[in-house]
Design a protein around this nucleic acid. Structure first.
Length: 798
RNA sequence: GCGAGAGUGGCGGAACGGCAGACGCGCCGGACUUAGGAUCCGGUGCCCGAAAGGGCAUGGGGGUUCGACUCCCCCCUCUCGCACCA
């Protein structure tokens, strides 16, 4: 029975069916989450990282949302009350650049792009609850971003301090690191300078330990994301030790992870920005040589600061006294010591730290060995080729000679505390979160600066502090808000006197650190969210998005959640216990970019072959978390994609299955049950590509059965719902039209299976002796090892 | 340098320690066609062989096991993070 199948009578025409189902689903309000307290279904919060509206959707969105939408639809079919919202992360610099470049207002540009993306999402058939849609640039949203700022301000978690920025002297404007190209302004080519501004910070460092601890117990994330966060927080254990400057009596604290090497200190180094440096250089008579160093570092753009040479540095002409042995060692100032980490000054042990070693060689400072490796020739400070950072026995270390390191680290730290010369200490690499941006298109910081009262919070009932629209975007000068003629002037909320608004706006990461709470109480006018709504929906059941947000966005959102917990507004501390990262979509081995001319866009594919094809191409390409090289999986763009042909065959096979009432062969019945079992396992683990391949096997077997004159109706009734999360339009069409179901497939139950029928019947046991195949025996699939051995030994034809 | 992950056909990729390469793309041959970018049938890891059949194969080398892509040790390569963090 070859040649034309009955199935060719049922044509698959995605462009004809897909838009009609979009309209139907919306009319039926199929994807709105239920807040009805009488709804007893367990809840499921399927969250996708919300997009930034720069133009239309790109392939990365198509990949991420194909996966996220499958998760949401599958959960609904498994009986969950699903919340699957969408919104836009809509503030940010690109809108301002568009204003400068094309003369279009940031607001117009942003909303036009959002509308475009919203249309594309609808066309793709994403199962979003559109009634909860939000945009972070809406005053009704950023009003609550500002409110959250004030809550942090009240708790002392928002504060101002001086901090350097990249500054272009010609354009008189602050530049982001990305706007600095090889030390020069990207727009005018002028060399960039550093400038200190007083800026707002969030005190995330106060939460460093909790951010670390909660990861161990409360989140199930990809290992690499956990590792990245852990490294970013960068906890180090060691000791704090106080040195005294001999010439002035100043006490200077340092942090070290190696207190066991204290007896090997031969010099002492200050960061260039350390406040004692000018005074000490003056006293030491070295100011003439120190000042040029300070100035050269000052004029180095922030982006190039870390390229500095480890060996660079200048002696201060003063000495520090080592508290453990009273020795006087020379002090230096050097760029390799960072003001931001630790205390901004270090003890230097060249024998056991490579950077100290190189510096010592350059500046002819003695190298003294205080850790000797065991069972090797003793190290000689004058002859060693590099620092020794390994284990060994302490030596030349007074009371601790012979102690074994690294165990001795704790011993020495405890001793320091007893002696009052220091104490065990912990330091983090994490720094406070700089949220000030000298930009227009962001949420204004709701603070008024009063000459008499200082920093005054804008009262909550006067939020939002709205962005003015009549601003000047021409480049140059201060930020548009600072230049505005009237917006900045405002009476002080406390004393009523003349005062000025803060003209900084907030980092857009602030906007995106709480949007998932807002989705729980859309449009709420008297609060950021209702605690009972958040209690019902959160924490998020499954978060889907790019690994590029592995550090900042996730860390900041976790921080906000912990602050809200401390405020008593939420009853959990981790917002996203489960996370999955989609891979990147690349093209020809490289990221897609305009300059490479290798951009492929999803919407033309959707228009030509259908949204289901686009989804299946993405999901079938490989594991969801792996990168996809479009060039390798897509083939000729004018040829019908393989997955489209498959959907066509599914249409044929389902139509044929409906048209016959012949009995189904046992083989097909068993395959159907087995497929339900294994596809369910795949969907539970987001193994979309293997789920699809198993559905292909089932549809192929159905074809064979039908061609042989058998039936396949029950198989079709299992196949179509399993297809629903992956190719929602095709499945809906087949379910409601061909299978004649009244209700949407997306609100029907996920198919179940009979464990007896779903069992693998038999497996072939290959008996090998010394690598040679001796026998092949059919055994029941679920026999245990002992039974196997018995059968094998019994049958062995040796 | 430190950390994480990965090496399987021409390609994307499958494979609770049990017939490696499922499923698909591509390619080859055929059918139907004015045509094929549509559809259908068959073949397709490599080598020897007309065939039957045999040999070799999961980055390399060891080990555990009746049996290893899978578990253990060493090495090589690649990708991705972080990178003067005291």
């Amino acid at each position: 029975m070859v040649g034309y199948h009955l199935g060719t009578m049922r044509r698959y025409e995605p462009s004809a069916i897909e838009p009609a189902w979009v309209a139907r689903w919306e009319a039926e309000r199929l994807f709105e989450a239920s807040d009805d307290p009488a709804d007893t279904r367990p809840r499921f919060y399927a969250l996708d990282m919300f997009p930034y509206p720069s133009g239309d959707l790109h392939m990365g969105h198509a990949e991420a949302f194909s996966g996220g939408d499958s998760v949401a639809r599958y959960a609904a079919m498994r009986g969950f009350n699903v919340l699957h919202p969408i919104g836009w992360d809509a503030f940010g610099l690109p809108a301002e650049n568009a204003a400068i470049k094309h003369g279009v207002a940031p607001k117009e540009w942003t909303y036009a792009n959002i509308e475009q993306q919203a249309r594309s999402f609808r066309r793709m058939g994403m199962s979003f609850d559109w009634s909860r849609r939000l945009q972070t640039c809406d005053p009704e949203y950023y009003r609550w971003t500002q409110w959250l700022f004030l809550k942090l301000f009240e708790r002392g978690l928002a504060f101002r301090k001086g901090s350097p920025v990249n500054w272009c002297p010609k354009d008189a404007t602050v530049l982001t690191n990305e706007q600095v190209i090889q030390g020069a302004c990207e727009r005018c080519g002028t060399p960039v300078e550093r400038r200190d501004l007083t800026q707002w910070f969030f005190r995330i460092t106060e939460y460093a330990q909790r951010l670390l601890d909660d990861m161990d117990e409360l989140v199930e994330w990809p290992e690499r994301v956990v590792t990245m966060q852990r490294n970013w927080i960068g906890r180090s254990e060691g000791a704090e030790v106080t040195f005294r400057i001999d010439e002035t009596g100043d006490e200077v604290r340092i942090f070290t992870t190696r207190p066991d090497t204290l007896w090997g200190v031969t010099f002492f180094v200050f960061a260039v920005e350390h406040p004692l440096v000018p005074k000490l250089a003056e006293l030491g008579g070295t100011w003439d040589r120190v000042r040029p160093l300070l100035e050269s570092v000052r004029s180095t753009p922030l982006t190039q600061r870390e390229d500095a040479d480890t060996k660079e540095g200048v002696a201060l002409g003063v000495h520090a006294v080592n508290p453990v042995n009273g020795e006087r060692v020379p002090c230096f100032v050097a760029p390799y010591v960072l003001m931001e980490y630790g205390t901004g000054a270090i003890m230097a042990v060249p024998a056991h730290d490579q950077r100290d070693f190189e510096f010592a060689r350059q500046h002819r400072v003695p190298i003294r060995v205080v850790i000797q490796p065991e069972g090797e020739a003793p190290l000689d400070g004058d002859a060693m080729p590099e620092a020794y950072a390994g284990e060994g026995l302490m030596t030349n270390s007074g009371p601790f000679d012979g102690e074994r390191t690294p165990r001795s680290i704790g011993t020495v730290a405890a001793w320091l505390r007893e002696q009052g010369r220091g104490a065990p200490a912990v330091t983090y690499r994490l720094r406070d979160w700089l949220i000030s941006r000298q930009r227009y298109w962001g949420a204004p910081i709701p603070i008024v600066h009063c000459p008499d009262c200082g920093e005054v919070a804008v009262p909550e009932d006067r939020l939002p502090v709205e962005l003015p629209e009549d601003v000047d975007f021409t480049p140059g000068g201060e930020s548009p808000l600072a230049r505005h003629p009237t917006w900045t002037s405002v009476p002080c909320p406390r004393c009523g006197g003349a005062a000025t608004r803060d003209t900084d706006t907030m980092d857009t990461f602030v906007d995106s650190s709480w949007y998932f709470f807002r989705y729980c109480s859309p449009g709420l006018e008297d609060g950021a969210f209702r605690p009972e709504d958040v209690r019902r929906w959160m924490p998020v059941s499954q978060y889907t998005g790019g690994v590029e947000h592995a550090i900042l966005h996730l860390l900041y959102s976790r921080f906000f959640t912990k602050v809200l917990f401390d405020m008593g507004l939420v009853d959990f501390t981790e917002p996203f216990p489960r996370l999955m990262n989609q891979g990147q979509v690349i093209h020809g081995g490289a990221a897609m970019s305009k300059s490479k001319g290798n951009i492929v866009e999803p919407m033309p594919i959707v228009e030509r072959w259908g949204a289901d094809t686009m989804r299946l191409q993405m999901l079938f390409a490989g594991p969801f978390e792996d990168d996809i090289d479009w060039k390798l999986i897509a083939g000729d763009p004018d040829k019908r994609p393989g997955v489209t042909s498959w959907l066509g065959r599914v249409f044929g096979v389902v139509a044929d299955a409906v048209a016959t009432d012949a009995a189904e062969p046992d083989l097909l019945v068993r395959l159907t049950h087995r497929t339900v079992r294994t596809v369910t396992e795949d969907m539970d683990r987001f193994r979309f590509h293997t789920a699809i391949s198993k559905l292909m096997v089932l549809s192929n077997e159905m074809r064979s059965a039908l061609d042989a004159g058998h039936g396949a109706r029950a198989a079709a009734e299992a196949l179509v719902p399993m297809l629903a999360p992956l190719a929602p339009f095709a499945a809906e069409e087949l379910w409601r039209v061909d299978l004649g179901q009244a209700q949407s497939v997306h609100r029907s139950a996920w198919p179940s299976f009979d464990p007896d029928l779903a069992r693998e019947e038999q497996v072939v046991l290959v008996v090998q002796v010394d690598g040679k195949v001796r026998d092949r025996i059919e055994v029941e699939a679920d026999v245990d090892e002992d039974a196997c051995r018995e059968v094998a030994l019994a049958s062995e034809n040796a």
